[in-house]
Write a protein that binds this DNA or RNA. Sequence first.
DNA 1: GCAATGATGGCACAAAGTGTCATAAATAGC
DNA 2: GCTATTTATGACACTTTGTGCCATCATTGC
Lengths: 210, 210
Amino acid sequence: MPLDIGERKRRAIRGELSEVALRLLTDRQFDSLTIDEIAEEAGVSRRTFFRYFTSKEDVVFAFLDQWAVRLGADIIARPADEDPVAAVQNSFRQLTAAYDDRALALVRLVRETPSLQQQERINREHLRISVVNALATRLGLDVERDMRPQILATIAFAPLDAAMFSWFGNRSSEEVGHLLDEALTAFVRERDAMCAAISKKGKARAAAIK
Amino acid sequence: MPLDIGERKRRAIRGELSEVALRLLTDRQFDSLTIDEIAEEAGVSRRTFFRYFTSKEDVVFAFLDQWAVRLGADIIARPADEDPVAAVQNSFRQLTAAYDDRALALVRLVRETPSLQQQERINREHLRISVVNALATRLGLDVERDMRPQILATIAFAPLDAAMFSWFGNRSSEEVGHLLDEALTAFVRERDAMCAAISKKGKARAAAIK
DNA sequence: GCAATGATGGCACAAAGTGTCATAAATAGC
DNA sequence: GCTATTTATGACACTTTGTGCCATCATTGC
C-alpha cells in the first residue's frame, strides 16, 4: 500500500501552501509576510495553515521534507566495503544535484532572516541524525550506547557544513556545487595533514589530547 | 579601561534577571513561565526585560555569555606548535570544568523544551564560530576565503557534539565530563582507523571521493 | 439514506515581541 | 551646586504567532 489517499492529499495541500508562500516571498522580507496573508492567498483559514505547518518558518523548508529520509536510505544502500565517510559524502553529492530554483530563493531569505537560519540549522540537524542512524546501521552499532556513528557523521559532514556556511553566509552568489568541491578539497588536505602528523608524533600526541 | 561602568551595570542586571528566571524554573515547565512573571519577580517592566534579552529563551543561557570569547582566547593562547585539533579540545576541556549547578538545571529544561534546544544549537554555533576564528588566527588564514579553519573546527568539535548530543539526549544523568571522555576516545579511535585506511588504500580512495 | 469519522472555519484567547512617548535617573559641563 | 543633556525605564497600545474549542461540512463505511 503506497501512501494511503489521506496522506497523498495532505502532501498536496502542504505543497500548495508552501508554493504560495514562496511565491509571495519572491520580492519581500520574510518577516513582512503574515500567515493570514498566506492563508488568504491559498484560500484556507489561518487555523488550517497551522494544521499543516507548526510555524511560519516551517513552510519555507517544506520542499526539503524528504531529504533526510532519502539521504539515510542512500547511505545504507552504498557498497558495504566503502569507507563510511566517503559513503556519506558521495550520497550527499547526489542529493545536492537535486537543488532546484526554489533553493536559490531560499538562500536569499535565509541570509536575511535570523529565524530562518534557525530553521536551517534544524534542517541540517535532521540530516545529520539521519546520517548517524544510517552509519550505525551500516556499522552494526547501537546509537544509544556507542558514540562512533556520531563522530563519523560529524566528520563526514564537515565539508558540508563548511560549504553551507559559506553559501548561506558571504558567498551565496556562487554555485553550491563548487563550494562543496572546495570544501571537500580542504577536507582531504586537512585530513591528510592530520594523519601525517599522527604517524609522525604517534603516541606523544595521543597522550597530549588525553 | 576595563569595562566602563555602564557595561558593568548592564551585566549585573542581566545576571540578576537570569538568576530570577532560573529560580522560578526550578520545578516548572519552561513554557508555563511568562515574561511578565519574570519581570514582576525581578521588579522591572516587561519592556525592560526585552531590553536585556532578545527572547525568553535567551535568559536561560545568559550565564554562558562569555564562553565563546574565552574559548577563542584560550585557543589562540595555546602553544603554537600544538596540533590545532588538540588545541581546541584541550581548551574546551578547561571550559567544561567550569560547569556549575546551573548547567544541570539547564539540561533538564533543554531536554523537555524544543525552543530551548534551538537556543542550545545557536549557542554551540557561536562557540564553533569562535573556534573557527581562533584557528584562522592561529594558522594565519583568511576565514572568508579559506575553508580549512571551518573544516578543522568541525572536526575538532565532533567529540563535543557527540557528548552534548548524548547529554541533552538520553544520557543526561551522567557526568558530562565522562561523556566527553568517551567521545574523545571514540574520536581517537575513528581518526586512527581513518588514517590507517588512507595509508593503505591511498590514492584509490582519494579518487573515490572525487 | 444514515451514522461515524475526520477535516475545516471561525472565534476567542494567551503570550511574545516592538514602537512610541513621557518620565525618571545618571552624567557632564559650568 | 545647578542646569542641560543624555540614557534607562515604565506604561501603553499594537501586531502577530500559535492554540483551544466547538459548530459545521465533507467523506467514508454500512
